[in-house]
Structures are given as C-alpha cells and as structure tokens.
C-alpha cells in the first residue's frame, strides 16, 4: 500500500486513493476543503479548485515535484508522495484566490438564505476568505426558478460544482437538467423549465454545497440553528428510510438525509420521506443527531447531548477522526 506524507503526517492508504481522501483519513486542519468533490458521486471533483495542494515530491520512483498545484480530490497518491497543504503559503494563497473568485458573483444574501448556517461556502469564506471584497462591479443575476413543485433554484448562489448534475445523471432514471451556456454565464437549468420530477430528485438539495437548491417545503420556515436535528427512520419501500428530522418542538420542519463528518450524504433518501412525511408520528426517533460542522450550526445544543440507551450515555465519539489543529502541525 502506498505511503503518503501530508503536511508531515504519514499515512498508508490503499492504491487508488486520492490525496484528499488520504488527508481525510488523517483528519484535522490539514484536510483540504472540497466544494465540488462528493465521494458518492462518480467523476465529481476537480472543478472548484479549493482543494488545490502542492505535491513537493511525486513518488519514490519519480521524486520530481509536480509543476503546478493539483486538485487533491482527483490526484491519486503514489508511494513516497509528499504533499503540502496548509504548510505551503503558495497553496493558501491560491485557495484565498479561489474563495475570492467564488464570492465575486455570489450574492451576500446569507441573512435571507435558507442554507445559512449549513453552507459550505460560508465556512470556506470564513476560514480562507478576505474580510473585504475587491469586486466592485454588478453581480451576475438570474431569476430564481422552481424546478418541480418541491425544489427552488437560486442560480445567483450557484458555484457551478456540478454535483446536482452528476446526481441527476447517476441516481435518477433520466436526467432532466444540466448546464446551459458557458463561462461566467453558465447556469444550471432544466430544459425549457421542465419540472424535475422523479423519486430521488430531492437529494440534489442535500448535495448542493450552497443555497442554490433549496427545499420549497422548508423555505423561510426557520433558521437551521433554531431547529433540533434528530435521527429518525421509517419503513420505506423506495429508500433506506434513514433520515435526520429538523424539529422545532414537536413539529417536523424539514427532513434530510444523514450526512458523514465531511457533510456527504450517507444514503440517499426518496422524495416521499423528504417532502411528504412531516408528522412526527410518521417517524421512529432514535435520538439527537450529531451535526459535525465547524460553523455556527455545530454550536447547537443538541451537539453535546448524549443518547441514553438503557440509561447509559451512548454518544459515540470514536467515529470522528482525531483532529489535528493547525498550530500543532506548524
């Protein structure tokens, strides 16, 4: 198995693992942020360029460094490879640039955006962005459109990660939407505003890293940090039926799929579970969900709550990678 050193930490990973996934196995601050890569979606990644890293040594057989920064989500490790992420000023500068590029046309409408609090771009901008924008021109705008009766598309907020396109390609029987136009006028759209209508289309809301695709049944209902995420399941013939309910009191405001530590959906859920089952009685609740986020939503009180099973705290911390903080690496 190839051994790779990332920011001084060595790890042995199976052949074919990407640098990003190797870094995720180490965990902590040295994990490059990823806005477009999604492990569940084949061919995703390589587009947003936030995960750029510097390969300072190619491999044991070919120790030459790679001439350019590479997208860690699409570059496979080689034995003896040495990678610099947060230890390379060049990488941090490039990342800062990418964040700036992603934000120049992104509306700063976080106060009215449903995604605020669980938005990857918000986290990214907080961690790698500048406090001030240098962009002084009018932003590119589109009209928000409904794609189907359950999903709202705010193209203004889209960062063109292509995740929803890959999802539609790979998960649903026929793809009804894609990319129109090109360059900075490219947009996600359905062909002639055709409704996206199939059993799993709702998952594009979960894979969207920003607030471009939002749940119309949840829009403007509540800020996410005022809701309590609860693990729940139900018998479903279409999907796994394992979800997170976002509750306020006894009310189920939103249903979403369960996510991993890096915010990726564990198992996709069907539209019936997501949009139709908004009664607490529809669900068997398991306990509070651990929302592993480093942004505002992780401050939710339920994060620290422990599940009681037979009176014993069952909160399982072992799944989480041991965090390596930046100061420790440097």
């Amino acid at each position: 198995m190839p051994k790779v050193i990332i920011d001084g930490f060595e790890i042995e990973v199976p052949a074919g693992t990407t640098i990003l996934n190797a870094a995720r196995q180490i965990g902590g601050d040295l994990v490059p942020p990823a806005m477009c890569y999604y492990s569940k979606l084949k061919d995703s990644g390589g587009k947003c360029r936030t995960c750029l890293v510097k390969v300072t040594k190619g491999s044991n057989t070919d120790p030459r460094p790679m001439p350019k920064l590479v997208a860690s989500c699409r570059t496979v490790v080689a034995d003896g490879m040495e990678v610099a992420n947060i230890t390379s000023p060049e990488v941090l500068d490039a990342r800062k640039g990418v964040v700036e590029f992603l934000l120049i046309n992104h509306p700063l409408d976080c106060p009215v955006c449903d995604q605020a609090g669980e938005c990857d771009l918000q986290d990214l901008a907080f961690e790698h962005g500048s406090p001030k924008t240098r962009y002084e021109f009018e932003r590119r705008t589109f009209e928000p459109i409904d794609i189907g009766d359950k999903i709202k598309l705010h193209m203004n907020r889209c960062i063109m990660c292509f995740r929803c396109v890959f999802l539609a390609d790979q998960l649903t029987p026929e793809r009804l939407h894609g990319i129109m136009n090109r360059g900075d006028h490219a947009e996600i759209s359905t062909y002639i505003e055709k409704a996206v209508d199939n059993d799993f289309s709702g998952n594009m809301i979960d894979v969207c890293p920003v607030g471009a695709l939002t749940d119309r049944t949840f829009r403007f209902t509540s800020r996410v940090w005022f809701t309590n995420p609860v693990l729940a399941h139900r018998q479903c013939n279409t999907c796994c039926g394992k979800t997170i309910l976002w509750m306020k009191g006894d009310e189920v405001l939103r249903v979403s799929a369960r996510t991993t530590f890096y915010g990726e959906v564990e198992e996709f859920i069907c539209n019936t579970c997501r949009f139709e089952k908004k009664n607490a009685a529809d669900w068997i609740m398991e306990g509070p969900a651990d929302i592993s986020r480093h942004s505002v939503i992780a401050q939710n009180h339920s994060h620290t709550m422990q599940v009681l099973k037979n009176g014993v705290p069952q909160y399982d911390d072992s799944q989480k990678p041991t965090p390596k903080v930046k100061s420790e690496i440097e």
């Binding site: 360029r49 590029f101 136009n181």
Partner: peptide
C-alpha cells in the same frame, strides 16, 4: 470562451 467549469477561469 471560458467553459465555466472551474472557478478561477470562469470568474
């Protein structure tokens, strides 16, 4: 002529 795929070039 930018295809719009990756952020630095598109924006």
């Amino acid at each position: 002529e930018s295809c719009g795929q990756c952020s630095p070039c598109r924006e």
